[in-house]
Each structure stands twice: as structure tokens, then as C-alpha cells.
Amino acid sequence: MSRRHGCERGFSLLEVIVALAVLGICVTVILQIMSSVTTATRVTDDYAQALSIAETRMALLMAQDDPAGADTGKVGDMFRWKSQVREYKPAMDNLLFNNTGFSDPENIYRPYHYQIVVSWGGFRKRQLELSTIRLGVAP
């Protein structure tokens, strides 16, 4: 008999199965990470587009002479916006105003609260709100 029988080289079936299992787990983890990154990128892009819509709507409202009121609209198939402008009534404990509210002896200027809400999404609804207070001329 020859000596070659006892010293054969190669992988056993058990080693091949373990290697395939480890490879399968690694591929699964990598695919999950890539899926999470893709989802995060899409959500970030959606928020950036919603912010752009809100800023544009806010600029258009601030350019109007008498912006008071509410409005709604749609941008593309995905984004819906609502705007509302109303006279701002501060709380009595608000430090930005004196005890009697906004002080304007000639009653020309009034503070207005501007609010834009952009919403989007199907199963998982998301929304972004942009809000500010600005002085405007009383009608």
C-alpha cells in the first residue's frame, strides 16, 4: 500500500457547510446595512425637499401685503402643504411683550404668526413645520 491514502488534503463537508453559513450571514448583514442606508438617504432627501417647499411658501406669504388667512396646495404627487397666517396673541407671561401685549401707540403694526406645514408619505406619514412671528401693517 502506498502512503498517499493517509495524507490526503482538502476540505471536509463540515468545513464547507460552516464556511457557507458564515458567508450567508455576512451577505445578509451587508444587505441589511445597504437597505438602511438607502432608506435614510431617501428620508433625508424628502425632508430637504419639504424644507425647500416650506421656505418657498413662507417667502411668498411674507411678500404679500395682507397675508392673513389659510391656504393649501400640492407639489407633485407626494407633498401637500398648508399655510396659515393669523394675528399673534402673546401669552401674558411672554417676556418679549409687555404686560398689555404688543405695544404700538399708533396701532399701525400688528404681530402675525406665519405657519407652514408640509406633509408627505403613504404608510408612514411625515411632516415638517416652519413657523415664525413677524410684524405686519394692520389692515
Rank of each mutant, 00 (worst) to 15 (best):
L51P: 04
R124H: 13
R80C: 10
I53R: 03
M78S: 10
D77A: 07
T132Q: 02
N94A: 11
P90M: 08
Y47M: 06
P111T: 05
D104K: 11
V27H: 02
Q32L: 14
F79Y: 15
D66M: 08
Y114F: 15
F79C: 08
D71F: 03
R42Q: 11
E106N: 13
G122I: 10
V85Q: 09
Y88H: 11
I116W: 07
S52Y: 07
P67T: 04
A50P: 06
G76Q: 05
A59R: 05
D46N: 08
R57F: 00
D104I: 13
E106Q: 14
Q49I: 12
Y88M: 06
Q64S: 06
P90T: 09
A68Y: 00
V37L: 02
E106C: 02
Q32E: 12
T38R: 04
M92F: 11
R42H: 05
S35W: 00
A40Q: 12
L60G: 02
M62D: 00
S83V: 03
A70Y: 08
Q32N: 15
D46W: 01
M92N: 12
T39S: 00
Q115E: 15
Q32I: 01
M62H: 03
N98Y: 09
L60A: 09
R124Q: 13
R57E: 02
E87K: 11
D65Q: 10
E55G: 06
Q49N: 07
T39Y: 01
R80G: 11
G122Y: 00
D93F: 11
S35D: 09
G121K: 05
Y112M: 15
N98T: 10
A68F: 03
D71H: 04
A48V: 05
D104Q: 10
D65T: 10
L51S: 13
T39R: 02
A48N: 04
Y114H: 08
S131A: 15
K74V: 12
Q32F: 06
L130T: 07
I30S: 10
Y112N: 09
G101I: 04
F123K: 15
M34R: 12
A91R: 12
T72V: 10
W81V: 06
Q127F: 12
R124W: 09
V75I: 13
G122K: 15
S83W: 03
Y114M: 11
Y88F: 15
D104C: 10
R110K: 13
F79R: 02
I116H: 01
M78G: 01
C26R: 03
T72G: 09
D93W: 14
L51G: 12
L128M: 07
R80Q: 13
V117G: 06
V27I: 14
L31S: 13
P111Y: 06
K89L: 11
